[in-house]
Design a protein around this nucleic acid. Structure first.
Length: 425
RNA sequence: GAGGGUGUAGCUCAGUUGGUUAGAGCGCCAGGUUGUGGCCCUGGAGGCCGUGGGUUCAAAUCCCAUCACUCUCCCCA
């Protein structure tokens, strides 16, 4: 085999697709109940949208973007979307949505791309579901979004996960905290890991959620962002917690929770799964009250999250949740000679038009092989046709599970297979 | 960008201190008398032992390189 999928990309074969369709069905039903409308965005946007929106210094745009020059003159730098919030914000501004409605509820499902080393639960093309709730600065918006995220995991049959929340404050609050933190870290830089000494310069908040033992020890007494929140931010965060408690959504405050995108303000959160390896963030998001303005719109408060569907699939598999019944075949037609095969083609067409799922042999195989195939496909029944049946215009219909066979006149077949003529005892 | 692990049949894997035609289970195909699936039995197809070099009388096995996959760090969904 010469060709294979590129590193970090993968195929989904029909067997696996079934699980995805099930999950997407649950998502769409949930979105209907919460009143969110589906947004479909291009996979490619101007690179600048992401650098402006997500932040030049973040890893996501700094080293993980799939960027290309297109063929226009002068060439335009375009990028595969690394996430969808920036695109959603762009659309919000582009179509002046703010003029049309005061609160906007959008969701999306689709692929996102990041050029990283693949590992368990992390791919260069991954599938993301996310919501954006735009227009409300109030903590009720947090409750709404966290509530639906929680419902999603519950609807998928998952229970092994935790919700962590934090507040990053508004930009000026964060700046103050940041300088206090840097000062603290400088004094202890000798105790920090090599990675963290580098982080100290680029993104000091990251040092706080380092996994290195030495970093954890060195930062036990580090200042907390929560101490730097002003009256308003503090009140907002307290209100969020009260609402979550009222809604009976379990959570824990983690003052070290930091997120990798620059646009977050105040509330940030993460749902982490226990069944995954190192890449255990199932859902990550937060409030981004400045993003819309940042990309050229009128200021609009907003909150949203991204949810990794690939990781959700892994969790569902680990939890042994998922759809209970596989696709079924209503009838498998077993034809014994050429005459019967012609009849099979014709009858399959009729039954399918009537709504039944029907299959038959395409290889001219023996009866035994056809019966085996019917069994393997999980057919509810086999319709067996030979020369005798053709002459008498009567089919042998065998209920596979019960192993019971009966004769059914041709003109009663459709009603039987589609269940219309069926009379339960 | 850094570090570990693994490459043998479609899949999951055995393969002894280097030794002759490379194995199992599952899956696939065909049979087990006339036109009936599952269970069982029999047979069959299917392998450049990841690739290239080296050591040796002899390499799936030892050495080197290389590629791929995988896990971890960084970072994130």
């Amino acid at each position: 085999m010469n060709y294979q999928t590129l590193k970090g990309f993968r195929d989904l074969l029909p067997e696996e697709t079934e699980l995805w369709l099930w999950m997407e069905g649950i998502i769409r039903d949930l979105m209907r109940r919460y009143g969110f409308g589906e947004l479909r965005l291009p996979c490619v946007e101007a690179t600048e949208l992401f650098t402006r929106g997500i932040g030049e210094g973040t890893d996501v745009v700094g080293k993980e973007m799939y960027s290309f020059l297109d063929r226009s003159d002068p060439p335009l730098s375009i990028s595969l979307r690394p996430e969808m919030t920036a695109g959603a914000a762009r659309a919000y501004v582009q179509y002046s949505i703010a003029q049309q409605q005061s609160v906007t509820r959008w969701y999306y499902v689709g692929p996102a791309f990041r050029y990283e080393q693949p590992q368990a639960g992390r791919y260069r093309q991954h599938s993301q579901f996310g919501v954006e709730l735009i227009g409300s600065p109030r903590p009720e918006a947090e409750a709404e979004v966290l509530g639906l995220a929680n419902d999603l995991l519950r609807d998928l049959g998952l229970s092994n996960y935790r919700l962590k929340i934090n507040s990053l404050g508004m930009p000026q609050e964060r700046t103050e905290f940041r300088s206090a933190l840097v000062e603290f870290l400088r004094e202890r830089s000798a105790q920090l890991s090599e990675d963290s000494r580098r982080r100290m310069e680029q993104n000091p908040l990251r040092v706080l959620d380092s996994k290195e033992e030495e970093d954890i020890e060195a930062t036990v007494d580090a200042p907390s962002i929560l101490e730097f929140l002003g009256e308003e931010s503090r009140g907002h965060f307290q209100m969020v917690q009260q609402l979550l408690t009222a809604a009976k959504i379990p959570f824990e405050v983690d003052s070290r929770l930091v997120r990798g995108l620059d646009y977050y303000t105040r509330t940030v959160f993460e749902f982490v799964g226990g069944d995954l390896g190192a890449q255990n963030t199932l859902i990550g998001g937060g409030r981004y009250d400045n993003l819309i303005e940042e990309i050229g719109g009128k200021p609009a408060p907003a909150i949203g999250f991204g949810c990794g569907l690939d990781r959700l699939i892994l969790s569902v598999q680990a939890a042994n949740s998922g759809p209970q019944s596989a696709a079924t075949v209503d009838a498998y037609i077993v034809a014994l000679d050429d005459d019967a095969r012609r009849w099979a083609v014709e009858t399959a067409a009729t039954l399918r038009r009537a709504g039944a799922s029907v299959e038959f042999d395409l290889l001219g195989r023996s009866m035994k092989a056809q019966m085996r195939e019917a069994n393997r496909k999980g057919a509810v029944r086999a319709i067996i046709i030979g020369s005798n049946e053709m002459a008498a215009k009567v089919a042998q219909v065998k209920e596979m599970e019960a192993n019971e066979q009966s004769e059914v006149p041709f003109d009663q077949l459709t009603d039987l297979i589609t269940g219309k003529g069926k009379k339960e005892i």
